[in-house]
């Protein structure tokens, strides 16, 4: 029985948004683990936040300085700043200028 064009579209669409996305996510996460391990072997530490995530953390700390979780957030923020200053190659896409502009809180 030949399938209609709409059915084919449905089959292909399902394959793309389900196994296609799952396979892409699997490959990406395994590759990023490899890269993390390689960087950790070479420099013993890696940055924990991307520039966008770090900006979110900074903004959250600025807006909630007295929050009971602020000390943990600050500790993690400062740790990432210190790491970025000591490592040769960041894991995330940090530029030298961005790293220089960072200050511990």
């Amino acid at each position: 029985m030949p399938l209609s064009a709409l059915t084919w579209l449905s089959v292909v669409g399902a394959l793309v948004v389900l196994p296609g996305v799952a396979a892409a996510a699997l490959v990406r996460t395994l590759r990023s683990e490899e890269r993390k391990l390689e960087l950790l072997r070479r420099q013993d530490a890696i940055d924990s936040y991307s520039p966008r995530a770090m900006a979110d953390l900074r903004a959250w700390l600025r807006d909630n300085p007295g929050d009971p979780y602020a000390p943990i957030a600050r500790e993690r923020y400062n740790e990432c700043v210190r790491t970025l200053r000591t490592i040769e190659e960041p894991y995330y896409d940090w530029s030298d200028e961005e790293i220089e502009r960072l200050e511990e809180l």
Binding site: S50, A53, L57
Partner: peptide, 16 residues
């Protein structure tokens, strides 16, 4: 959620 997202969810994340 905003606290969780800023402090932990995006930490070492493969996607933002």
């Amino acid at each position: 959620p905003e606290r969780a997202r800023a402090i932990d969810l995006n930490r070492n994340a493969g996607v933002y």
